[in-house]
Simulated scan of single mutants.
Amino acid sequence: MEATRRRLTEKQADTVEKLTRAALDVLRREGFAGLTVRMVAAQAGVGTATAYTYFSSKEHLVAEMFWRRLAATEAPGDGEPDSTKRVLAVLRQIAMLVADEPTLAGAVTSALLGTDPDVAHLRLRIGSEIRTRLIDALGADNDLELVETLEMIYAGALVRAGMGYASYAEVAERMEKAALQVLRG
């Protein structure tokens, strides 16, 4: 998978993969507040300078982890003829991407709200991918206002979950209810 800052050789891609795997281990152990790029580098067995070659900050590293999860999942519902069901499946999938890792979920929320330019770049990539999935799910029924409304639903719901107001499973259900209200007019 291509990194966000530049094209990678196979060896560099392996290093980035090591760093993202190590970041999850450190995150589980230390939480987002305790996570540092230095700790991740040590866990991955690479130098700190090497880690900073690929990631400008811990926020960038966590945002990359989320991007990789999203990019590695195929959009659901391609064979489903009902556009409403396709949209609901896309929203549920997005909500559940980090549901199995509560520490990662909270870290993703914090990271994506950061000001690091590399995070901003990833936010655009993530948003673009999700928008594409929603447009594809809507099919002929899509219009920009509807897509933006659905984006607001998932963004607000994921922030609520990341802040600990609800679990990701609960948020997925709430997103489905809100989306149904919007889609049914």
Rank of each mutant, 00 (worst) to 15 (best):
M1I: 02
M1E: 14
A3P: 02
T4I: 01
T4C: 10
R5T: 01
R6C: 00
R7A: 05
R7P: 01
T9C: 06
T9R: 03
E10T: 12
Q12G: 07
A13F: 04
A13D: 11
D14S: 09
T15M: 01
T15Q: 10
V16W: 07
V16P: 01
K18R: 14
T20I: 01
A23M: 10
L24W: 02
V26D: 04
R28S: 03
E30R: 11
G31I: 09
F32V: 03
A33C: 12
T36L: 07
V37T: 10
V37G: 13
R38H: 09
M39F: 13
M39A: 15
V40K: 05
A42W: 08
A42F: 12
Q43I: 02
A44R: 10
G45P: 05
V46F: 14
A49G: 13
A49V: 15
T50E: 10
T50K: 12
Y52P: 01
Y52C: 09
T53E: 11
Y54F: 15
Y54I: 02
F55H: 12
F55Q: 12
S57F: 14
E59T: 05
V62K: 05
M65P: 00
F66N: 14
F66M: 12
R68P: 05
R69M: 02
L70R: 07
L70S: 09
A71Y: 02
A72L: 04
T73N: 12
A75W: 07
A75Y: 06
G77S: 08
E80H: 10
E80K: 01
P81M: 04
P81Q: 03
D82H: 09
S83L: 09
K85Q: 11
R86K: 09
V90W: 14
V90T: 13
Q93V: 01
Q93Y: 05
I94N: 02
M96V: 04
M96C: 09
M96S: 03
L97F: 04
A99C: 07
D100G: 12
T103P: 00
L104E: 12
L104I: 14
V108L: 13
L112F: 12
L112K: 15
L112D: 09
L113I: 10
T115F: 13
D116Y: 11
D116W: 15
D116E: 11
D118Q: 13
A120I: 15
L122I: 06
R123W: 15
I126L: 06
I126G: 11
G127H: 10
S128W: 08
E129F: 07
E129H: 10
I130L: 13
I130N: 02
R131G: 02
T132V: 02
R133V: 00
L134C: 06
I135Y: 00
A140N: 05
A140W: 03
D141L: 15
D141K: 15
D141N: 14
N142G: 04
D143H: 15
L146A: 02
V147C: 05
V147I: 08
V147P: 01
E148L: 09
E148G: 09
T149Q: 07
E151H: 04
I153S: 08
G156C: 02
A157E: 08
V159G: 07
V159T: 12
A161I: 00
A161G: 02
G162Q: 11
M163S: 13
M163E: 14
M163K: 15
Y165M: 11
S167D: 03
A169M: 06
A169S: 11
V171C: 03
E173P: 12
E173F: 06
M175T: 05
E176M: 00
K177I: 00
K177Q: 11
A179C: 04
V182L: 07
L183C: 01
L183A: 02
